[in-house]
Design a protein around this nucleic acid. Structure first.
Lengths: 132, 132
DNA sequence: CGGAATCCTTCACGATACTG
DNA sequence: CAGTATCGTGAAGGATTCCG
């Protein structure tokens, strides 16, 4: 893995990209529109589909399903079906899903800490480049 | 800011989304195809455009330009033009750009630690759902 | 209730050509 | 060298409808 922190010998970009699962692969999933909100909601504990849909404001049924499928595929959530009528399906964060919350919180804290600077930078950029 | 870690009172999803810069906004940028590789390359220090293009294998000129513009817009990199012929443009991580490396490294470490489990989960998922 | 299926729009990204 | 401009494609996401 290429370090993001240290400055050492030049590493091959491909070296990092050839792991079992590339970091960029995970980032692209996390970077999806709803992933973080679903994980946030599940942080409070197991939750039913309809509860999740209420918690994550604005998400469509399709996108909630798809996001949960992606999370399930990667082993970040479990899906437990209770075959009653009407059906009941509960989703819960797995152990590695729980462990992802730390890194995500680190991003969130960075964003919160630098939000004003970023907004200012964007405004300045828009004023300079947007005017031209 | 809604905590990603603690389990407390239910927070409004919108509460987290109404910061100066939403976390999902940053995540979507980080989740772009090239952002992390460009940041990784710049971790080694300031770099010229053409050097960056060589370091980040497979990136097109267009995407490198666009990624650098996005980073510049958010104040994560500086762009220094030396008006000579041929032109010389150097890019360098800013302070907050440097500070983002930590959170990114946390994601990278999580990915490395759980890569095998994720790959296994994906294979199992494909075998079950893919066959059906 | 918890989906699946379909259609549609927008956008990210790639390829190519041209320029100061 | 370091871009900008243009075009084309696939994927992401939204709205709607139907189902066990």
């Amino acid at each position: 893995m290429v370090s993001l922190v240290t400055r050492g010998e030049p590493h091959s970009f491909a070296e990092c990209n050839q792991a079992a699962v590339p970091v960029a692969d995970i980032l692209s999933r996390i970077g999806g529109k709803w992933m973080i909100y679903v994980i946030m909601a599940l942080t409070r504990g197991p939750m039913r589909f309809s509860d999740l849909r209420r918690q994550v404001d604005g998400i469509s049924q399709k996108m909630l399903t798809q996001t949960l499928r992606d999370l399930e595929e990667d082993g970040l959530v479990t899906r437990k079906v209770t075959p009653i009528i009407p059906p009941r399906v509960d989703y819960e964060l797995t152990e590695i899903g729980m462990e992802l919350r730390g890194p995500l919180a680190a991003i969130a804290e960075w964003t919160e800490r630098n939000g004003d600077a970023i907004a200012a930078s964007r405004a300045r950029y828009a004023a300079e480049r947007g005017a031209a």
